[in-house]
């Protein structure tokens, strides 16, 4: 955790943005990188273990969940999970039928995979930024980025896979028509072939890049804002009782997880009593606010509110970005299937 001085603030942000890298270091051979510099020195022969592990894990969750539903799919009355899964499947099916006019059995499952998987990866953004890296810190893992879609490798990997599909189907469906499209468009004269080729190639290459970088940019920015808001908690530390609350009084600049767990338990207890009907809702809000203010001071309250506000807004973004990625994939593949 960072204090109020700028150096450690920068460090905090950089630490948060550093992947857990396993790669071939020129000096140490294949090993985990112990610093950002080491990671950079590894160059291309390295793997972001955290991104890949979270991404594969979330992908497996998607597979398991949907396979589970598929196995239990009945023609009778659907219930629970099956209902939910069918809702998504039907939604995707509708989008694909609207935007994709060729006949390809791959596009709909592809769209489903993209939508759910990207959504799950984006969803990791809503976990408190420090939670999992902090816990993994105890296990000796010092770098951890839990949102795979804030890693350009992940988003570009998917975009390039989509690009490969685009090229494959363009060649398969259009054959020489694809070459004609690249050379004789938009100026239909042989003199313009170099110009056309240049323009169309740029246009073609722009598709996977915009696809991958859009998702990356959105998620990266969102993550950044979460990190910046998270620093408000820390900013209160050492700023006295009014700003930093009991927390600043007791621990100074060093965060103690246990303290926050106690605060968390107290707030949960108050909410629980409200649910049991022992205290009124107004009192619940008031008592919770007092507990949080006493514990973390004004900065914690403001930070908490901002985290919450941004998270609410971010729910929209992560869903929208997953949807956009899916729709653009469908549209690109649809274009690859259209023979002029």
């Amino acid at each position: 955790m960072a204090g109020e001085n700028p150096a450690s603030t920068t460090e905090y942000i950089q630490h948060h943005l550093q992947n857990l890298v396993y790669g071939n270091h020129p000096d140490h051979g294949w090993s985990f990188a112990h610093s950002a510099q080491e990671a950079a020195e590894m160059g291309f022969m390295a793997i972001h273990v955290d991104s890949l592990a979270w991404s594969i894990g979330l992908g497996l969750i998607f597979c398991f969940l949907f396979r589970f539903a598929a196995v239990r799919a009945t023609t009778g009355v659907p219930s629970g999970l099956l209902n939910f899964v069918e809702l998504i499947v039907e939604f995707i099916d509708g989008v694909v039928k609207d935007s994709f006019h060729g006949s390809n059995k791959m596009v709909a499952p592809l769209a489903l995979t993209i939508f759910v998987w990207v959504f799950l990866m984006n969803l990791m953004d809503l976990l408190p930024v420090d939670l999992i890296p902090y816990l993994l810190g105890f296990a000796g893992v010092h770098y951890q980025k839990i949102v795979p879609s804030t890693d350009p490798n992940i988003t570009m990997g998917m975009a390039l896979a989509v690009f490969a599909l685009m090229l494959y189907y363009s060649v398969k469906i259009k054959g020489t028509g694809f070459i004609k499209e690249l050379t004789m468009h938009p100026f239909n004269h042989w003199v313009f072939i170099p110009v056309n080729l240049f323009m169309e190639t740029v246009g073609l290459l722009a598709k996977p890049f915009s696809l991958g970088l859009r998702l990356f940019g959105n998620m990266y920015a969102g993550e950044m804002i979460f990190i910046l808001i998270a620093m408000m908690f820390a900013a209160g530390a050492g700023a006295g009782f009014a700003a930093g609350g009991l927390h600043a009084q007791l621990f100074g600049e060093h965060t103690n997880l246990l303290f926050w767990l106690v605060i968390f338990a107290l707030v949960c207890g108050v909410c629980w009593m409200n649910l049991k009907g022992k205290i009124s809702t107004g009192k619940t809000v008031l008592i919770s606010a007092v507990i949080m203010t006493l514990g973390g001071g004004v900065f914690a309250i403001a930070g908490g509110l901002m985290q919450w506000g941004w998270a609410v807004f971010h729910v929209l973004i992560i869903t929208l970005q997953a949807f956009i990625f899916m729709v653009l994939t469908i549209v690109y593949l649809s274009m690859a299937h259209e023979d002029h």
Binding site: A40, A46, I47, H48, L52, G157, A164
Partner: peptide, 10 residues
């Protein structure tokens, strides 16, 4: 950095 993760993801 862009690295092998790209292909892993693909």
């Amino acid at each position: 950095n862009i690295n092998l993760t790209l292909f892993g993801q693909m």
